[in-house]
Structures are given as C-alpha cells and as structure tokens.
Amino acid sequence: MSEFSEVAKNSIVSNIEDIKQRLGLEDQVANVMQSNNDAQIKHKNCMEIQRIPRSCCIHPLNFIIYGAPGTGKTYNTAEYALAIINNREPDLLKKTDTERRKILSEYKKYIQKGQIVFTTFHQNYGYEEFIQGLRPDPDKDGISFKTVDGVFKKLADKAILDNDNNYVIIIDEINRANISKVFGELITLIEEDKRWGELNESCATLQSGDVFAVPNNLYIVGTMNSADKSISLIDAALRRRFSFIEQKPDESLIEDDVLKNVFCELNTRLVSELDSTDLLIGHSYFMNRKKEDLCKILNTSIIPLLYEYFYDNRKKVSNILAEAIKNTDVEIVDDKIGRLNVRNKG
C-alpha cells in the first residue's frame, strides 16, 4: 500500500484531535497520566526500618483454626487474638455470659486501636482487597485511578513501625477464596524466618513501586470449615506456612443429657459411616438448649446438614437419624414428598 500524502496525514491528525476534543478525552488521558505519575512519586519503602527478632514465641505467626460446622471456630478467634496481643496462652474453657462480655469488650477496644482486624474471605475476594490495587479516583475529573492499599497491607504498614505491640488479622472462612491468588507475594513474606526483623527478613516490590514486608509482630489467624474443604486440598505451598489447630466437637459444653446423647450418637455414627472427622456436627447447635428444643434443632439445622453430607441420600440420612433418636421421645416423619423431618411422639 502506498504511503499517505502529507495532506492526508494532516487531515487524519486533525480529525483525531477534533474527536478527542468533542469527547473530552484530552483531559481524561492527561488525568490518567498524572495519576500514574503521582503514584510513582509516593512509593513506600520498608528498607530503612529496623526491627529485632521476636523474643516471645508462644503462638505461631500463621495458624488456621479448623473443624466441623458449629464447633466455635469464629467464636474463639476473639480469645486467640487477645492471647496474642497480651503474650499469653489462650483460655478456651467455657465462659459465663459475664466473662464473655468482658472478653468482647477488650477485643473491641483493640479493634478500635487498630491492633486487631477482622475480615472474611469469599469467592470474589481478591489481591486488590487484601494487598493493593487500583481504584477510581472520585476527586478528579474524567478517567482517573489511584493506588489503594488493601486491608492486610494497611495493617502491616502500621505494625512494622510499632516495636512494642502485637497485631492480629483474623481471616474468617480463609478457604472460601482462591488463597494463592489473594496472598500473592505473601506466600514468601509470611514465612516466620522471612518476617521483617528475623534473620532471613525479606521484602517484595509491589506493582505500585512500594517495597513491602510483613513484620514479625503481625499474626495471621484463619478459620476453616473442614466440611467445605479438607486441609489436604489447600495449596501445598500455603499449607506449609501455616500451623493448624483442630477445633473438635465438645460434648462437655452441652448441659442437657438428652441433647448430649443425641449429639454423641450423631457424631459416632457419622465417623463410622463416612470414615472422616471433617464431616461432623458441632456442639453449638445444642448449647443452651433443652430437650424440648430437639425437634426444632434437628429439623432446621441437623437434618439439612446430614442431607449435605450424604449428597441427598435419603436412606443414609434416615439410618443415621434413627440411631441418634432411638432413646428419645422423637420420631421420624417420612411423607414421601419432602425431606425427612422429626416430631414428638404421640
């Protein structure tokens, strides 16, 4: 194809400039370029910060509390967080209402101070929300973006400057997101010996130009429902960097003897049938309840869970249920149309 003449070239350039002016693209492009330039100027750098190795190693820096639904994983994160903040062992014994209120009052105090942060992972949770990403800048005209730090980076940047206090991020349902994608560079930086202040301290340069490190006073506490995904299915590289604490079903927390017997029989049968401790029933379904509540507990919470565990196998659900309630005043109702349910005899 022959080259354009000078007249044609000038005409094309003129038309392009006219279109840009009509659409207001000149200012928008300029804003984008200015936004990028601003971001390049304001880099954060951890290299000049000095920290010493941690001396109190009661808790692992990264750990996940896992267990069956209803075992109190999220409930206990407040106590774990306070134990980390105060450098003590966690007290997981049953608490009175007064004792629980005291724990939550102290927990909320540290949230307000910014030493504890709580977040929940989900399928759409990403690197941008956790570490850093670009967000539209509403303060500028046209198309403009700015770099925004995520919840973890904000906490890490605060913790690295504080040599006197511990910080905790609680990640509820940690296995519900694509963990490797969300953590990004943290896969390396969260290792205990690579935390900033330790012997092999490491840092990473983010896409914004910030030089980022995870300090050795920032603890990551995750919770994981073992019914959703077995530990063995978690990314091997990430699993190696976390300690795992099992939260087991605890019959001692159930006061009513009838409910306690049903609870124990259900879990005994489930372990026998499924040959797994991932799919059990937690004690919270039966706590602070009486035998008069048994039908409601089974119909609204336990039976739906059993159908999930047995992939809607009606016969297996019926067998487990029959064994669990055989010494109670409750019977199974099978109307052949809906799911199984129970009612009081007579």
Results as ranks from 00 to 15, higher is better:
residue 59 H to N: 04
residue 105 S to I: 11
residue 81 A to H: 06
residue 47 M to T: 15
residue 85 I to V: 14
residue 56 C to R: 15
residue 62 N to G: 02
residue 84 I to H: 06
residue 120 T to M: 11
residue 113 K to R: 10
residue 78 A to Q: 11
residue 72 G to M: 04
residue 89 E to A: 06
residue 98 T to P: 09
residue 102 K to R: 14
residue 88 R to S: 12
residue 44 K to M: 05
residue 60 P to R: 11
residue 93 L to P: 09
residue 112 Q to T: 14
residue 108 K to G: 15
residue 46 C to T: 05
residue 46 C to D: 02
residue 114 G to Q: 00
residue 45 N to Y: 05
residue 70 G to S: 13
residue 101 R to T: 08
residue 65 I to H: 00
residue 121 F to A: 05
residue 97 D to G: 09
residue 100 R to M: 12
residue 73 K to D: 02
residue 66 Y to A: 03
residue 80 Y to C: 01
residue 60 P to N: 07
residue 82 L to E: 03
residue 93 L to G: 11
residue 103 I to C: 13
residue 53 P to E: 09
residue 67 G to P: 00
residue 46 C to W: 01
residue 49 I to N: 04
residue 121 F to M: 02
residue 91 D to C: 03
residue 99 E to G: 15
residue 90 P to S: 13
residue 39 A to L: 03
residue 54 R to D: 08
residue 66 Y to V: 01
residue 103 I to N: 10
residue 93 L to N: 13
residue 103 I to Y: 10
residue 57 C to N: 15
residue 83 A to C: 09
residue 86 N to W: 03
residue 86 N to F: 04
residue 49 I to S: 05
residue 40 Q to G: 12
residue 67 G to Q: 01
residue 42 K to H: 12
residue 106 E to D: 14
residue 98 T to N: 15
residue 53 P to K: 10
residue 71 T to L: 02
residue 67 G to A: 00
residue 93 L to R: 15
residue 62 N to Y: 00
residue 120 T to P: 05
residue 73 K to M: 05
residue 47 M to W: 06
residue 45 N to A: 04
residue 52 I to D: 14
residue 90 P to Q: 08
residue 79 E to V: 08
residue 55 S to R: 14
residue 39 A to T: 11
residue 78 A to K: 13
residue 82 L to P: 05
residue 56 C to N: 14
residue 110 Y to K: 08
residue 47 M to S: 14
residue 94 K to V: 13
residue 92 L to Q: 06
residue 106 E to G: 10
residue 44 K to G: 09
residue 43 H to E: 08
residue 118 F to S: 13
residue 64 I to G: 04
residue 116 I to H: 03
residue 78 A to S: 13
residue 100 R to L: 11
residue 56 C to S: 15
residue 58 I to M: 05
residue 86 N to D: 05
residue 43 H to K: 14
residue 82 L to V: 07
residue 111 I to M: 12
residue 45 N to S: 08
residue 100 R to T: 10
residue 96 T to P: 06
residue 115 Q to I: 02
residue 48 E to I: 08
residue 112 Q to Y: 12
residue 97 D to R: 14
residue 124 N to T: 12
residue 58 I to A: 01
residue 120 T to E: 10
residue 62 N to S: 02
residue 119 T to L: 12
